[in-house]
Design a protein around this nucleic acid. Structure first.
Length: 288
DNA sequence: CATTTATCCTGTAAGC
DNA sequence: TGCTTACAGGATAAAT
């Protein structure tokens, strides 16, 4: 599931392959892939043809590709991978992927950019004037890899919440880029239960947790991200290998690497949480 | 207003 | 064997 490390891996790969190239052809194979583009698929395609991609930027789990002329300067293609979205760079004569949703061809005749998405939770849109920061994602907080992320502001905002700490980590308006996998991993490192009330966390404890979030995201990025199957891949279709380094996520029944107690999976927000029952005991007054 | 829940989707795997 | 059910989960609209 693409979280910050996976999306950043895709961003850097894309930057190398599509920057400076002029779009010559756009095909939308599934309307759901551009559902966030209100004017529709044809408008999306027409707005993209003839423009040059000037780079690839990211905030949290969102990517955007700023565009240069000939239209209004400052537009961008906004992309979210959802759960199963892939942005692949493929030779133009490569066979279509089963779940190919959008094809972007280039005037130089080189490799195509393809958006492939099995579960169709992801999508592309054309953001007017969104080259610097698309208005559609202005509500998304900076991510902890952003040099302008304000640690003290995060600590204050976290403690102002009245919710469980994992809910807060997953709230992209508070801190972006963290999903279910890395939330569980950071909480394991911090020895915190997911239902720990945010308002009872001390400032030092909140800073420590943030440190672990940064640490695990950084390690995962250096490993090329986490892959459990072929759903998350970089632009060349290759998997990352951070799954071997996971301490909690997906390890139901396996021994905690700190104390040996079996990791437990439990329902959380219509999904799952993994924790060590001994290292991360339930708080006295849990907030779920 | 803040917070929580339901919903979108499809392939895989487990269970009967 | 074949069918049904659970699960994966990010973002957001709707509900509380």
């Amino acid at each position: 599931m693409p979280e910050l490390p996976e999306v950043e891996t895709v961003r850097s790969g894309l930057a190398k392959w599509v920057t400076g190239r002029r779009v010559s052809r756009v095909e939308v194979h599934h309307p759901r892939a551009v559902r966030r583009h209100a004017p529709g698929a044809d408008h999306f395609a027409a707005g993209l043809v003839g423009r040059t991609i000037t780079g690839v930027r990211r905030r949290g789990k969102y990517l955007w590709l700023p565009l240069d002329g000939p239209g209004e300067p400052g537009d961008a293609v906004l992309a979210h991978l959802g759960m199963s979205g892939q942005l692949l760079v493929q030779p133009a004569d490569a066979p279509d992927e089963k779940h190919l949703r959008v094809r972007v061809g280039f005037a130089d005749g080189g490799p195509e950019l393809r958006f492939v998405d099995q579960r169709t939770f992801g999508g592309l849109s054309l953001s007017a004037g969104g080259a610097d920061l698309p208005a559609e994602i202005a509500h998304i907080a900076r991510d902890p890899a952003d040099p302008e992320f304000d640690d003290e502001e995060f600590v204050t905002a976290l403690r102002r919440r009245h919710t469980g700490v994992k809910r807060a980590l997953l709230d992209q308006t508070l801190i972006s880029g963290v999903g279910n996998i890395y939330a569980d991993e950071a909480l394991w490192r911090a020895k915190l239960h997911w239902a720990r009330p945010t308002e009872t966390m001390t400032r030092p404890a909140a800073r420590t947790l943030l440190g672990y979030v940064r640490e695990v995201l950084g390690e995962a990025l250096r490993a090329g991200g986490t892959s459990f199957d072929t759903l998350y891949v970089n632009v060349n279709g290759e998997s990352g290998y951070f799954d071997r380094s996971l301490n909690a996520y997906g390890r139901d029944g396996e021994p905690c690497r700190r104390c040996g107690t079996p990791i437990r999976r439990e329902p959380f927000m219509n999904r799952s949480s993994y924790r060590c029952p001994r290292c991360q005991p339930r708080p006295r007054h849990p907030r779920t």
